[in-house]
């Protein structure tokens, strides 16, 4: 077990290193750099621009920039954002809670809801409920998140005036308002982005879970359990469900990065102050240090997702437990 974990962690570190290296060079291959838009608003003397380039190290050869970044990053220093002028770490930590709240909530709702609905579909196979859910889940799966986000924002937020259409908290809310009021305000802001993100991802989970559950229900051990006089509830929710959760675990591992990146689209549509909208801005402004910071975080979450999925497999199925 310890050896297996050590090997996996080494592999994970390697993956992260490769990912950020790729990101580093790809970003600089893209046209423009953090300062190229500076001259847009007012003409800037070339000497001044060159001075700024030198200040941010952008005049150095690419490999030496890379070396500087790696050395600093290993020490936990990701530099300062060129756009915000603040340390990248600080900005990311500022934005992280909103992303974790939205991404985590969506992940939880998607996985639990999708697993439950998919399993129920399988148990009522070919019933009107199953068919309806099948059509709805496919439609939800095919809906682009930014479109659904805009429609919900317009309908619920603007037409019906039920919920706020953007942001994280009501700007008019007093900072010393009672905590209940603050929580309700937060939930009202969270509702639409969370709904959007959940709706567009739950379809896939439902479809995977339905198939897996049907497969599990057809296993001989299910018939054997019936022959032993076990209750139908126990057979379904203990024997069949437990063995049907593997595809969900795979998806959970793959989707862990949404915790951080949330959804770039959904966060942008709802002006949710998470890392997704931050990354989108950083791309626009070619804010290299900030982009590298976000990329690194996402890369770490990707490998962590894989690792967690493997651990979850082992917890679910004794046959894949490392000796």
């Amino acid at each position: 077990m310890a050896r297996w974990l050590a090997r996996r962690l080494l592999l994970a570190a390697l993956t992260v290193a490769i990912a950020i290296t790729l990101a580093f060079f790809l970003m600089r291959l893209a046209p423009g750099d953090p300062l190229s838009r500076l001259g847009d608003e007012r003409p800037m003397p070339a000497a001044e621009l060159a001075g700024l380039r030198a200040r941010y190290g952008l005049d150095q050869p690419l490999l030496s920039q890379y070396a500087t970044f790696v050395v600093a990053a290993t020490g936990g220093d990701f530099g300062r954002s060129i756009h915000y002028g603040r340390p990248v770490r600080e900005i990311i930590l500022d934005r992280l809670p909103a992303s974790v709240l939205l991404g985590g909530g969506a992940l939880l709702l998607t996985m639990l809801g999708g697993a439950l609905l998919g399993a129920m579909q399988a148990l009522r196979r070919d019933s009107p409920l199953d068919r309806t859910a099948g059509v709805v889940s496919l439609a939800a799966y095919a809906t682009p998140s930014f479109w659904l986000g805009l429609v919900l924002a317009w309908l619920v937020g603007i037409e019906w005036r039920l919920l706020p259409v953007g942001g994280f908290r009501d700007p008019l809310l007093a900072p010393d308002a009672p905590w209940m009021t603050q929580v309700v305000d937060l939930l009202r802001h969270l509702a639409l982005p969370l709904l959007t993100l959940t709706v567009v991802s739950i379809g896939a989970v439902m479809r995977y879970q339905r198939t897996a559950m049907l497969e599990a229900l057809a296993q001989p051990f299910v018939a054997a359990a019936r022959a032993r006089g076990l209750s139908e509830r126990r057979i379904r929710w203990r024997h069949a469900l437990r063995t049907s959760l593997f595809p969900i675990v795979t998806l959970l591992g793959l989707w862990l990065p949404v915790l951080a990146a949330g959804s770039v689209f959904v966060e942008s549509v709802f002006a949710w102050p998470g890392l997704g909208s931050l990354a989108a801005e950083a791309v626009g402004t070619r804010d290299y240090p900030l982009l590298m910071g976000v990329t690194l975080l996402v890369a770490v979450l990707v490998v962590l997702g894989g690792l967690l999925a493997d651990l979850a497999y082992a917890a679910l199925d004794p046959r894949v437990r490392p000796a």
Binding site: P220, F221, A223, A227, G229, S231, H239, T243, L316, P318
Partner: peptide, 25 residues
């Protein structure tokens, strides 16, 4: 019926691997 299944009539199947649930002891 459940009080007959397993309690009064029990059944052993052909393939003991697939008739046991792999994830329970």
């Amino acid at each position: 019926l459940r009080k007959v299944r397993g309690r009064r009539i029990a059944m052993i199947f052909q393939d003991p691997m697939t008739s046991l649930n792999p994830v329970f002891t």
